[in-house]
Simulated assay, not measured.
Amino acid sequence: MLFRNLFIKYYAAAGEGGGEGGGNGGGNEPEITPELQAIIDARVNDSVTGLQNKNNELLGKLKKATETLKTFDGIDPDSVRSILQRFSDDEEAKLIADGKLDVVLEKRTERMRTDAEKQIKTANDRAGQAEAFANKFRDRVLNDAVREAGVKAGVLPTATDDLILRARSTFRIDEEGNAVAADADGNAILGKDGKTPLSPVEWAESLKDSAPHLFPQAEGTGAGAHKGGGSNAGLKRSEMSSAQKSEFLQKHGQQAYLRLPK
């Protein structure tokens, strides 16, 4: 467009002054005069200078942007945008911006209360499980202690369960794992000497008067069944079943049972 305008301005006028010569020579290339060349050069220089200035301006902006980006090295833009978005959408932020600090405090207090209740419930559940486990352990220790005391006191093997049930109302397991006798108020029960605590063995032996059925019959009671070689003649301990042994002990006593041949 620039060269077209220059041609119209300068060569059209030259054609008009040439008359027919201009018309006849219409197929020849126009002559570029020094004046025209100077104008063309000036316009080209202006265009180039403008482009250079624009290029320098863009390069300056690019350099400045590059320097600015260096301050964000190691920062994830997406994460930053996400955080800013969450903050802007956060209910508390909006409430604070609206000056509703009391509402914010109330909500935070409610959250803290809820968290505390959850923690307390978790702690209580764990404590309950631990207590159940401890009670199970205590029962087992007490049962073993009473069973051992029953053997030492001569309680019938078949009466062991009865003995354990009776012991639970008198004995408990202390922190050291020992079976100790205590009354309903938790006070220690003393033995016959009035000084030392009542032991499971002493307690079991005391039942001979109040619960004689827990023990074998005294020697001589019902002994006629075996002294004369009656129905027990020929019985051997090794040949008796568990039921027969139990029945014999209840009827004739431990001493009579021990006198039977092996």
Rank of each mutant, 00 (worst) to 15 (best):
Leu2Gln: 09
Asn28Pro: 03
Asn135Pro: 11
Leu235Ala: 08
Met240Val: 00
Ser210Glu: 08
Thr33Glu: 09
Ala42Arg: 05
Gly21Tyr: 05
Ile189Met: 10
Lys195Phe: 08
Ala145His: 04
Glu148Pro: 03
Ala42Asn: 14
Glu202Val: 00
Glu205Asn: 04
Lys208Asn: 00
Ser238Asp: 06
Ala145Ile: 10
Arg43Cys: 04
Arg113Thr: 09
Asn5Gln: 11
Ile83Asp: 08
Gln250Pro: 13
Ile39Trp: 06
Val151Tyr: 02
Ser231Lys: 06
Ile39Ala: 04
Leu207Ile: 05
Ala256Gln: 04
Pro261Thr: 13
Leu142Val: 14
Thr160Ala: 07
Ser210Tyr: 05
Gly228Asn: 13
Ala145Asn: 09
Ala12Asp: 07
Gln250Val: 15
Glu20Thr: 08
Glu176Thr: 12
Thr170Cys: 03
Asn24Cys: 08
Ala179Ile: 15
Ile39Gly: 03
Leu235Ser: 02
Ile39Leu: 13
Gly50Ala: 10
Gln217Gly: 06
Tyr11Gly: 03
Val80Glu: 11
Ile39Gln: 04
Arg43Asp: 11
Ala223Asn: 10
Glu20Ser: 08
Val151Ile: 12
Thr71Tyr: 12
Asp209Trp: 01
Leu105Val: 15
Lys118Asn: 12
Ala42Val: 07
Asn187Glu: 09
Lys70Phe: 04
Ala181Glu: 11
Val103Thr: 14
Leu258Gly: 09
Gln244Ile: 06
Leu95Met: 15
Ala159Asp: 11
Pro34Val: 08
Val180Asp: 03
Arg113Glu: 15
Ser231Arg: 00
Glu247Trp: 11
Phe171Thr: 12
Thr160Ser: 04
Ala132Arg: 07
Asn5His: 14
Gln85Gly: 13
Leu198Ile: 04
Leu59Ser: 12
Leu163Thr: 08
Glu110Met: 12
Ala134Asn: 05
Glu110Asp: 14
Ala97Pro: 02
Ala116Glu: 13
Arg138Gln: 01
Arg4Trp: 11
Ser88Trp: 12
Ala123Ser: 04
Arg4Pro: 02
Val141Phe: 01
Gly99Trp: 10
Asp76Glu: 10
Asn124Tyr: 06
Ser210Ile: 05
Asn55Asp: 12
Phe215Leu: 02
Lys208Ser: 08
Glu20Ile: 15
Asp102Pro: 00
Leu249Ser: 09
Asp90Gly: 02
Glu31Asp: 12
Gly154Phe: 01
Thr109Cys: 10
Arg147Gln: 11
Ile39Cys: 08
Ser47Ala: 15
Val155Ser: 00
Lys64Arg: 07
Ala204Asp: 02
Phe215Ala: 07
Glu110Ala: 14
Gly228Ala: 04
Asn45Trp: 01
Phe137Met: 14
Ala211Leu: 10
Glu35Ser: 03
Lys70Gly: 07
Gly26Ser: 15
Lys152His: 05
Ala153Val: 07
Ala65Phe: 06
Asn5Glu: 09
Thr33Tyr: 06
Glu202Cys: 02
Ile173Gly: 06
Gly27Cys: 01
Val141Gly: 02
Ala134Gly: 07
Gln52Leu: 14
Leu6Asn: 00
Trp203Cys: 03
Asp76Tyr: 01
Gly50Thr: 05
Gly50His: 03
Lys63His: 13
Lys100Trp: 05
Gly23Leu: 13
Pro77Leu: 11
Ser199Tyr: 07
Lys227Trp: 05
